[in-house]
Design a protein around this nucleic acid. Structure first.
Length: 939
RNA sequence: GCCGAAGUGGCGGAAUGGUAUACGCGGUGGUCUCAAAAACCACUGGAUGCAGAUCCUUGUGGGUUCGAAUCCCACCUUCGGCACCA
């Protein structure tokens, strides 16, 4: 019977979706209004780059974001969901070179196409506040910010080694250089080092605030962890060493408690003191090394075999805490870009220093006891009187017997703690034969000779012990240090060094200081003595913003031979990109060769001057776009209308990809703090809450790419199944933050669900039932309704769209059955279907609107209040009571939800299966979880 | 090496101390049809069994608990970030 009506009433997503999008636009449904009576909610999703095509990844990022914004709107919030385009950047310029089309034309055509695609999504975008970053009225303000930063000393020009992408023909910020091979984030080409004068922003001035203010935002742990990692704070001390000639050599160390173990110094090859301190005998070797080091960084870092190299520069320094004379080396494992570019090397407590020390025969002096107290010793065959093994055994000292080289059986002793070490040293000394020695290595380093015990506690001791050992054992002659000798024995490998905090030793007055306070005590003393002070260092560098390309906002600076670097006056902004630029196949910026652009007059003296030809990193444009949206292309003294900003800012809910964790998401936080200091905003953080979605993968669970041939074009599905199906399927795949793979059969399942809902609500029942529905039936239907509202609401709160959809599906499956009963058409039925439509509205806005209208409800479903569930109605009356015996399920009974422990147990024991399980057993305990289960514990 | 996320049926996944596998896909059988598709109905983790039922199963191995996918310890694998950062 449905045959002749089906054609007419079957859901047609294509027509319906177009109809409602038109209606929404005509009625200005998503227009922004400032309404002080309602709490505002600024929802934002990362603005798309103007690539020209909205791919499935954009849908995956944006559709759930829209669904959540719609949910907030239905919850009474005055929601604003603006949209715009990140329009500067290389692809436009590459298109210009390749196809001879101007980047502006290319970009604007792409935007036109993408607007259509974005509209098809049916999102609640506010198009009236769209902003495009490449328009002069936008980048005027980007340049304005540059000048403000410059005024505050936050923008500076400096010469230095920078990362340069040979394919993109421009420098990059450190944040844009990725991976072990240090490749360009955009084009994957490994970068090269160049020495260039570039513009930087002092983001490092805000490093501490960027860390501290993490407490003020609800962002995913993983994003904050990545930023924390990137900022790389370490606490330590600034300590000043001196060369023998008296030159200051400051170092940064996180371990001032190991100062007494510093046995050499290392300067980065680019360190200015290298040239100054190198002696004439070493000059040639050092210069050669420096050259090799600079070449190496220019070639490629791919081969990071990490074998340490270095050269002695011939000079010595004095360890300020114990006055020992220590050699100065230069080596490329010390980086000029971190700390002071010089280190004190403590090989006993740092693996890199140890590797270097062993390779170059530099002494190793342990100054921190091992927290685990472990020490080891080898007793050589024939070096002791008989009976030592027995004595060790009696003393409770662990040892194993094994071959020592080819010399016979020796003892391999493991010691634990000072007491045992002392006891052992005593015993070995007692049993030691003349002309031999024994060593203790690990927590403490002791050398037992026939005439006494010598500790490895200084550079002098190292030489003395080595000489004595070599006198006893001629085969040790080629060793340069004690540790080099010891390091050849595999048994000692794991106790050669350690990096833990622990009790200080061989450290003069600090010997015996416990590990927990060692660092603080030493720093306090250094300050007292004027030798150094506490210092914090950050791994993060300043933000390099110069780009040697055309398609970006020109840096508004002028170079005058008379006046030097002069900022463009505010009233002269924007510095426009010349339209008649010529794009060269080399990729070099046309600005450099554009005489009309380059040549200008100095704003100060009026004389001839040159413009800066570099443009700004496009991350500049996106660092403040959330503010630009407030009043795009603002005509006034401020980048946006501050009054309107007061109402809307900051962003309440931001969403986007995690790949921006240490780029956009870091830069915009930095920007906001500067804007606050300028007085434009009165908050510290740009986005209160952030949610990062995962990645949408191809059907084969691999990244979508043209070469794999697994790219999904959303437009194809929008044309056949409709935008609602695409939206809902993307949200159904799995948890949004984890991403998931596309499935062409999966989306049909979603489409089936939408059709089933349609049929449940629109089609009359096939076999109408006469008579009244029973009260219990009605209660059950209402229970399903209110349980579903409860579940879906909780899921929306935590972005769990997949389970929200599952709950709606389950509910609809129940409605399919209920429809064939007398429940159809009852008030409870009406309640069920209208609530289902409301719950669907954020995810499937078009079909929900159509169903809402067909239910005879007033336009628009998107202006309705989100349903509120009734806790009482959602309560279960009957439950499945699980009966366990010793934790194993033995029966399931239908029982009233309120059943008591006693009733449950009586009911359970009446079950044959339970009775059998309990046979011959005694119940010692009964655990009852109301409404859930009864567990009978027997003996 | 350090930091973070994850590991559950044939597949995507659900369940964060109490019925493991919700929901969906796929599969099998059926209804309708001349037939197919669509739609609808039923079944669908594995093993044993005619059945009642029993046993096994959440990366591996231990532990805590009346009870563990969930908490603790150790390990394995995959993915993401950082990495000679003193």
């Amino acid at each position: 019977m449905a045959d002749n009506t089906a054609g007419e009433s079957r859901y047609n997503p294509i027509e319906t979706e177009a109809k409602w999008r038109r209606r929404w636009a005509e009625t200005g449904l998503y227009k922004r209004v400032e309404d002080p009576t309602r709490p505002k909610h600024y929802a934002l999703t990362m603005l798309p780059y103007t690539s020209g095509d909205l791919h499935i990844g954009h849908w995956y990022a944006m559709a759930p974001s829209d669904a959540h914004a719609r949910y907030m709107r239905m919850n009474g919030y005055n929601v604003w969901f603006p949209v715009g385009f990140d329009a500067f950047g290389l692809p436009a310029e590459n298109a210009a070179i390749k196809h001879g089309i101007h980047p502006f034309k290319w970009t604007m055509a792409n935007i036109e196409h993408m607007r259509g695609q974005l509209r098809a999504m049916g999102a609640m975008w506010d198009w009236e506040h769209e902003a495009i970053t490449c328009l002069p009225d936008y980048y005027k303000w980007t340049q304005w910010f540059f000048l403000k930063f410059y005024e505050r000393g936050l923008a500076y020009r400096a010469m230095g080694p920078v990362d340069f992408c040979p394919t993109c023909n421009t420098t990059l910020a450190r944040e844009q250089v990725w991976g072990e091979d240090r490749h360009c984030e955009r084009c994957n080409t490994p970068v090269v080092k160049k020495n260039l004068e570039q513009w930087y922003f002092r983001i490092t001035d805000y490093a501490q605030q960027l860390l501290d203010d993490m407490a003020k935002i609800e962002w995913p742990e993983r994003v904050l962890a990545m930023q924390e990692n990137w900022i790389g704070r370490s606490e330590g001390a600034h300590v000043v060493f001196h060369s023998e000639q008296g030159d200051e050599i400051p170092v940064f160390t996180t371990r001032p408690d190991t100062l007494w173990g510093a046995t050499f110094m290392v300067l980065a090859p680019e360190h200015p003191l290298v040239d100054q301190l190198t002696t004439s005998e070493q000059r040639e070797a050092v210069t050669e090394y420096q050259l090799a080091a600079s070449r190496q960084s220019e070639i490629e870092r791919l081969a990071t075999d990490k074998v340490k190299t270095g050269v002695f520069i011939g000079a010595y320094a004095v360890n300020p805490v114990n006055q020992s004379r220590i050699p100065i080396w230069t080596a490329d494992y010390v980086l000029m870009g971190y700390g002071t570019g010089a280190i004190m090397a403590v090989p006993a407590h740092d693996d890199r220093d140890l590797a270097f020390a062993i390779k170059y025969g530099l002494p190793v002096i342990p100054v921190i006891k091992r927290p685990d107290g472990l020490a080891k010793s080898i007793v050589y065959p024939g070096s002791v009187r008989e009976g030592l093994a027995g004595a060790l055994h009696a003393a409770g000292i662990r040892y194993e017997v094994g071959p020592v080289d080819d010399a016979g059986e020796g003892l391999f002793v493991s010691l634990q703690g000072d007491e045992q070490i002392d006891r052992y040293v005593q015993l070995v000394h007692d049993y030691l034969l003349p002309g031999h020695w024994a060593e203790v290595v690990g927590s403490r380093w002791l050398f037992v000779f026939a005439d006494g015990v010598r500790a490895l506690d200084s550079v002098a001791a190292d030489a003395e012990i080595l000489a004595r050992c070599q006198a006893i054992c001629p085969s040790a002659a080629d060793n340069r240090t004690v540790v080099e000798m010891i390091s050849r024995l595999p048994f000692y490998q794991d106790v050669l060094y350690h990096v833990e905090y622990g009790e200080m030793m061989s450290s003069g007055r600090f010997t015996g200081t416990p590990g927990e306070v060692a660092k603080a005590k030493v720093i306090a003393w250094l300050e007292e003595q004027g030798l150094g002070h506490a210092e914090v260092n950050y791994r993060m560098h300043d933000w390099l913003i110069s780009r040697q390309r055309y398609w970006g906002a020109p840096i508004p600076m002028i170079y005058c031979d008379q006046c030097g670097v002069v900022p463009v006056p505010y009233e002269d902004l924007p510095v426009l990109l010349p339209e008649d630029a010529e794009f060269m196949p080399t990729g070099e910026s046309p600005l450099k060769y554009h005489a009309g652009f380059v040549n200008t007059t100095c704003p100060k003296c009026g004389g001839p001057a040159r413009r800066e030809t570099d443009t700004m990193d496009t991350f500049m444009c996106s660092s403040w776009y959330q503010y630009a949206y407030v009043t795009p292309y603002h005509k006034g003294d401020t980048p946006w209308d501050l009054q309107q900003g007061k109402y809307w800012l900051p962003v309440d809910q931001y969403t986007g990809g995690i790949e921006h964790a240490t780029m956009h998401l870091l830069y915009t936080r930095f920007f906001t703090k500067v804007l606050r200091d300028i007085g434009l905003v009165d908050f510290d953080e740009p986005m209160k809450r952030l949610f990062c979605q995962g990645m949408i993968l191809g059907e084969d669970n691999e990244k979508m790419s043209k070469s794999r041939g697994n790219v999904v074009n959303p437009d194809d599905y929008v044309r056949t199944l409709g935008a609602d199906s695409v939206r809902a399927f993307l949200m159904f795949i799995g948890p949004w933050e984890l991403g998931g793979s596309w499935s062409s059969t999966g989306i049909e399942g979603i489409n089936r669900f939408i059709t089933r809902v349609w049929n449940v609500i629109i089609e009359p029942p096939e076999h109408p039932v006469d008579g009244e529905a029973a009260p219990a039936q009605i209660r059950e239907l209402r229970r399903w309704t209110h349980q579903t509202i409860r579940e879906v609401t909780a899921d929306f709160e935590s972005f769990k769209f997949n389970t929200a959809l599952a709950a709606m599906m389950k509910f609809n499956n129940n409605l399919v059955k209920a429809k064939q009963t007398a429940l159809y058409g009852t008030p409870a039925w009406q309640e069920a279907v209208s609530n289902l439509v409301l719950l669907m509205a954020p995810i499937m806005p078009h079909v929900a609107e159509e169903l809402w209208e067909r239910l005879g409800q007033p336009y628009s479903v998107h202006e309705q209040r989100w349903p509120i569930y009734d806790e009482e109605l959602a309560q279960d009356e009957q439950i499945t009571l699980v009966i366990q015996v010793n934790g194993r399920v033995r029966a399931r009974l239908e029982a009233p939800a309120q059943i008591s422990a006693q009733e449950a147990q009586a009911l359970a024991q009446a079950q044959p299966n339970i009775a059998r399980a309990l046979e011959g057993q005694q119940i010692v305990n009964a655990i009852f979880v109301p409404g859930k289960l009864l567990n009978l514990v027997t003996r």
